[in-house]
Design a protein around this nucleic acid. Structure first.
Lengths: 146, 146
DNA sequence: GGTGAAAACAATCGGCT
DNA sequence: AGCCGATTGTTTTCACC
């Protein structure tokens, strides 16, 4: 039961376009059984969607950085996520424990764009920033152990 | 030309399982033209693959953290990525500029698992660790502006 | 969870602009 | 070069068991 669902999740994490026929062969179920399991996993929110993995350099976003932010006025209400949500270059926004309040992962084309982005972040969210530039990425987005 | 490729990438980033028929409708091209463009994008490495987006809580990995590591012996050869590559809980490994040498993104089920993971990282790579626990994630994995 | 038929789709080819 | 349209075999879907 749950075992087969985990197997399906692993297969789809590895190849998001795998056909239901192949999923059925791998799991030993019939095509329609696999199909309804996948749909159920989507409806329950376990599978949130499917996406293409793109090469960031190839699409002109060669520079990745982590930006930690800290409010300048600690008494002000913390609505940084809403204030920053509109900035497309921010790929992820994590609220964290520790000295800073959020860690942002950003992707830009150049150091110049990074500078502009940081100014925009500081102005828009009224925060101080601490930036860590990524030099290389041995791996990323590895799928989790199921 | 390149404009249409960017459009295709955007569509596939949004829905990795979109059919070639739908891609053709959206782009105004024929099915076979879209098909050969996608294959070319894959062969050139612009599209690295397709994957399912899973809900980490639902699959029992409720705890995310960033682990910055710094070698204990700065004179030793830096082969941390190879030493850590076998640890499945490490979702990403970035070499970074700054005080620390790598930032790891890890996913585990519990604080207890995090403790074990940190011990494993320290022992296996001979590094000191600094861990920042993620409390919540307003957003993550947003697709880049094309 | 399975089956079977209808509809939709993927993948290839030769020819067209 | 890149695109189209038809063909062929496969995949997805749906109603039903």
């Amino acid at each position: 039961m749950e075992e087969i669902d985990r197997q399906i999740l692993g297969l789809l994490a590895g190849d998001g376009r795998m056909s239901f026929t192949d999923l059925a062969r791998e799991t030993g179920l019939s095509v329609s059984a696999v199909h309804q399991r996948v749909r159920r996993l989507q409806k329950r929110g376990v599978v949130k969607g499917f996406t293409a993995l793109l090469d960031n350099e190839a699409i002109g976003l060669a520079l990745t950085a982590f930006v930690s932010i800290k409010p300048i006025d600690p008494a002000a209400p913390d609505d940084a996520p809403q204030r920053l949500a509109g900035i497309e270059a921010i790929e992820a926004c994590h609220s964290v424990a520790g000295e800073e309040s959020y860690i942002l992962k950003v992707r830009v084309a150049s150091p110049n764009d990074l500078e502009n982005l940081l100014q925009q972040i500081r102005a828009q969210a009224n925060v101080a920033t601490r930036t860590t530039v990524v030099l290389s990425t041995p791996w990323e987005g590895r799928r989790p152990p199921l």
